[in-house]
Design a protein around this nucleic acid. Structure first.
Lengths: 210, 210
DNA sequence: GCACTACTTGACACTGAGTGCCATCGACAG
DNA sequence: CTGTCGATGGCACTCAGTGTCAAGTAGTGC
C-alpha cells in the first residue's frame, strides 16, 4: 500500500527526471530550433533512453507546451475566488494574470519563459499544440464564467466567448512580450488588451440574455 | 513556356486527382474516425499511390482543413470591399460570412461541410491544425482592419484583437452548428455571436488610440 | 514516324515520432 | 535471502512524411 503523502519518495525522483528532460529539451529546442532537434538529441543530452522520454512527455511538443500550460487549474481557482460582484473583465484579468505572475516570481525563470513563448509563437507545430491546450482552458473558463453569471453554457454563447476573449487578450500580451520587459510592463500590456475586450465582456445587454 | 491561361489543360487534371483524393479521404475519415484511418487506406480507396497523396496534400490533416480553409483570400477581399464608413463589427460580420455562404450555395455541400466541421472540432489533431490556419487568417484580417482604421498593426493591439474576436465569433457559430440548420439559422447564430463582440469592436475609445 | 522535352506517377528507401512488449535493475517488505 | 513493485532500457513495430529515381504520357518540332 502507498503512503497517504504521495509527493514524497518516488514522486520527487520522477519530478527530478522530468525536470532534467525538460531542461535539456528546452535548451536544445530554443537554441537550435524545433524541427532540427530530434528526440534522440534530447535524450542524449539528458543521458536517458528514448523510451523514458515518452514515459514523461506525450510528444516532443508536450515538453515545451506543458512548461507554460501546467497552470490551468490555478487560473480556474483564481477566477472562482474572485468576488462575484466584480465585473467579468476585472475577474478574468486577474485570473489570466496568474500564469504571468508565476513567471515573474523568479526573475531567472521569467526570461526563460519569454524565450519559450517566442519559440512557441514562431514554430507552427508548437503554436498549434499551444492553441489546442488553450481550447481546454477556454472550456474550463467558460464553465466558471457560466457559474458566475448564472447563464447556461450550452444555450448561451456568452460564457464561451467571454473565455475566448480573455484568452485572446492573453495571447496578445504574449505576442507583444519583448526582451527586458519587467512585470510592470507586462501588467500594462495586460491592461491595454483587456481594455479592448472589456466593453464586450461587461456589456449589460449580454448579461441579461434575451 | 506555359500558356497564359494556366487553368486549362493539365491544371484541371490535377484538380480531378485532388478531388478524388479529397473525397475518398473525407468519406473514410468522417465515417471511421481520424486516428484509425491511415494514408494507405485513403490512397487504396482512391486507387492511387501513397506518394501521390503527399504531392497534393501536405499532411493527413491538410486534406480536411483545406476543405474548409481554402477561402481565406475571399474573406480578405470581402472585407476590403466593404464601405469604409461601415463599423468594424458589421464589416467583419460580412467578411466572415463568406465561407459559410460558400457552403450554403449548394445544399448538398452544406451537409458535408457540417460533418467536416464536426470532425475537426472533435479531433484534437485536426482542431489544432484548424486553429493554426486561423492564425494566418487572423494576421491577414488584422492587416486589413489596420488598413481600414488607420492604426499601426504593430504598435496598436486593436487590429489583431478585432480580427481575433471576429474569428472567435465564427468559431462559436461552427461549434453551435446543428444538423438540419438552414442558412437562415446560421445567419441568426452569426448575428448573436457578433452582437456579443460588437461593443468591443465598435467601442469609440479603442479607435482613437491613446 | 522519330527524337526532345515537360510533367506526372509509382516504387523504393530512409528518417523520425510514437507505442507495445519484455528483460533487467534497484528499493523495500517479509 | 527472497518475492514484489516501480522505473528503466532495449528492441521491434506502425505510421507520417521526404528524397530519389525510373518509367509512362502527353505535346512539339523535324
Amino acid at each position: 500500500m502507498r503512503s497517504s503523502a504521495d509527493t514524497s519518495l518516488a514522486e520527487r525522483k520522477r519530478q527530478l527526471v522530468a525536470d532534467d528532460l525538460r531542461d535539456a529539451a528546452l535548451m536544445l529546442l530554443a537554441t537550435k530550433g524545433f524541427d532540427v532537434v530530434t528526440v534522440d538529441d534530447i535524450v542524449a543530452a539528458a543521458g536517458m533512453s528514448r523510451r523514458t522520454f515518452f514515459r514523461y512527455f506525450a510528444s516532443k511538443e508536450d515538453v515545451v507546451v506543458r512548461f507554460l500550460a501546467d497552470t490551468s487549474a490555478d487560473i480556474i481557482t483564481e477566477l472562482a475566488t474572485r468576488p462575484s460582484a466584480e465585473p467579468p473583465s476585472v475577474a478574468l484579468r486577474h485570473a489570466l494574470w496568474v500564469p504571468l505572475a508565476a513567471c515573474n516570481d523568479h526573475p531567472e525563470h521569467s526570461e526563460r519563459a519569454r524565450v519559450v513563448v517566442r519559440l512557441i509563437l514562431d514554430t507552427p507545430a508548437l503554436h498549434a499544440r499551444w492553441l489546442e491546450r488553450q481550447i481546454e482552458w477556454r472550456a474550463e473558463l467558460a464553465a466558471e464564467v457560466a457559474n458566475r453569471s448564472g447563464l447556461d453554457p450550452h444555450s448561451d454563447p456568452y460564457p464561451r466567448m467571454a473565455a475566448g476573449m480573455a484568452l485572446l487578450a492573453l495571447d496578445t500580451v504574449l505576442q507583444r512580450w519583448q526582451p527586458g520587459d519587467d512585470e510592470q510592463h507586462l501588467a500594462e500590456l495586460m491592461d491595454q488588451a483587456f481594455a479592448i475586450v472589456a466593453p464586450a465582456l461587461d456589456a449589460p445587454a449580454t448579461l441579461p440574455a434575451a
